[in-house]
Design a protein around this nucleic acid. Sequence first.
DNA 1: CTGTATCCAAAGGGATACTG
DNA 2: CAGTATCCCTTTGGATACAG
Lengths: 138, 138
Amino acid sequence: MQDGTFFSPGHPEETTPRGNVFARDCPTRKLLDRIGDTWSVLILRLLGDGPQRFSVLKRAVDGISQKMLSQTLRSLERDGLVTRHAEPTVPVSVTYTLTPLGRELLDALGFLIDWAETRMATVGANQRRYDARRLEEI
Amino acid sequence: MQDGTFFSPGHPEETTPRGNVFARDCPTRKLLDRIGDTWSVLILRLLGDGPQRFSVLKRAVDGISQKMLSQTLRSLERDGLVTRHAEPTVPVSVTYTLTPLGRELLDALGFLIDWAETRMATVGANQRRYDARRLEEI
DNA sequence: CTGTATCCAAAGGGATACTG
DNA sequence: CAGTATCCCTTTGGATACAG
């Protein structure tokens, strides 16, 4: 799973130096596999405002199921992007917090989020124009 | 980082509870729906180096199928992120080019890609540590 | 070369029920 | 409150065949 055998051993360097940049295990692909899902980025954003409890996150994200919130938080914890703290009260109170690594990622995501908020309307218009044109062609 | 869909305090029993920042149609979620797939970002990156032909893209992205390359390019074109130009030779030669909007998105993605390339190894280590700890617990 | 259509297996994710 | 387990439908995407 480590070190993709994109090139055969002893194989001379390929013409395109970026050839293996897009190998199965390139960092970009790994990251996309992890945060390209429906919920991870939204949860990271919420935690960017400070530690939050499970139930608060559940209410804050429109449409997320208990299963997916739990599952996503587990993934983020496993990646070292958030930490989980359980206060031994009855009933138990659990708080999730962004780690420094998670904060870094959120910062990097900031530019993308900004782009989405200023440009997605344009993208929507483009889609409508494209679809209208395709209808004409028929 | 705001998307203008805030809590409406005073309507505790709205039939459609969309009074939060992360509504179904918030820009971030829309963008993730579009580029959170396996291939879009990789193709945008390749086109960042300049116009590319279909067959070049096909060879450059490890493991992509003809169907998915075609489908992803069609989506990107529909969004106004790339343009398609077909040279009427025999056989036909098709070139895909990043639009200014696509270039903008790629720039915004740059910070994320940089983060992935410097930090995904750490994430991998975190995952291994997490998994090892869970094994101990059993 | 650049696609589209179809079939099918695997993964994603919602609803529900149950537990400490 | 904070989860886990199960069922099951939907979506994703690979393989293959075919066409302009």
